[in-house]
Nucleic acid binder design. Structure first.
Length: 201
DNA sequence: CTAGGCTAATCC
DNA sequence: GGATTAGCCTAG
């Protein structure tokens, strides 16, 4: 787990114009969700750099917030206990979201590696089948040569493992090899899209 | 000027 | 605690 984005806060946030605004309008108790501008409301206040720093330290120390610590933090920072609670809630949400993203990236890398290995294995299978096919062809030639020399007793064709040497079998293997080529092509496209997606091309 | 990211705050 | 909203800010 790497560091959080290092609390890099635009300098403006620390300036007095963004500093904690008066809270008087909070007691206004809006009905329902904050609708639209609600003009009378105070501007949205961002926490100051120091406030965030302390909150971050506290969060790193302990991600849950029990009453005592909440009150102490609130007093130290000059915030509502409610605000401190909200900050922790949001901070936990950010942390979780970040972890989910990291887990996703990790899974994706693992997945891509597996897909790549599958491709290699399929290639391997393809090559081996090609070799087998050639070997079978060779055996067939030899067998037919021997048959020609011996003048042919009736059993020659039937006794052999004909299913492996048949024209149909060879054809099937050829088709299999073609399928492998198609798979490889598809895979290449797939990986390009995946990588483009991953690295935001 | 606008799209999009970040975050405080609200609602359920 | 998750989902959502809305203010603020920046990059393009």
């Amino acid at each position: 787990m790497t560091e959080e984005k290092k609390v890099q806060i635009p300098s403006l946030w620390a300036s007095e114009r963004c500093f904690q605004m008066p809270q008087d309008s909070v007691g206004e108790k809006r009905t329902r969700r904050r609708r639209k501008k609600a003009k009378g409301d105070a501007k949205k206040k961002r926490l100051s750099e120091d406030q965030v720093k302390l909150l971050e330290m506290s969060f790193m120390d302990e991600r849950k917030l029990e009453a005592g610590r909440k009150a102490h933090l609130a007093a130290t920072l000059g915030l509502d206990a409610k605000q401190v609670a909200v900050w922790f809630q949001n901070r936990r949400a950010r942390h979780k979201s970040k972890q989910v993203k990291e887990a996703y990236v990790e899974l994706k890398l693992a997945h891509d590696a597996v897909v790549l290995e599958k491709c290699h294995l399929e290639n391997e299978v393809s090559k081996l089948k090609e070799k087998l096919s050639e070997a079978e062809e060779e055996v067939r030639k030899l067998a037919s040569g021997m048959n020609g020399a011996s003048g042919g007793n009736g059993e020659s064709g039937d006794g052999s493992p004909s299913s492996c040497f048949s024209a149909a079998s060879l054809q099937w293997q050829r088709e299999e090899a073609e399928l492998m080529c198609i798979n490889e092509y598809d895979f290449t496209n797939y990986m390009m899209m995946e990588w483009a997606d991953l690295y935001g091309a």
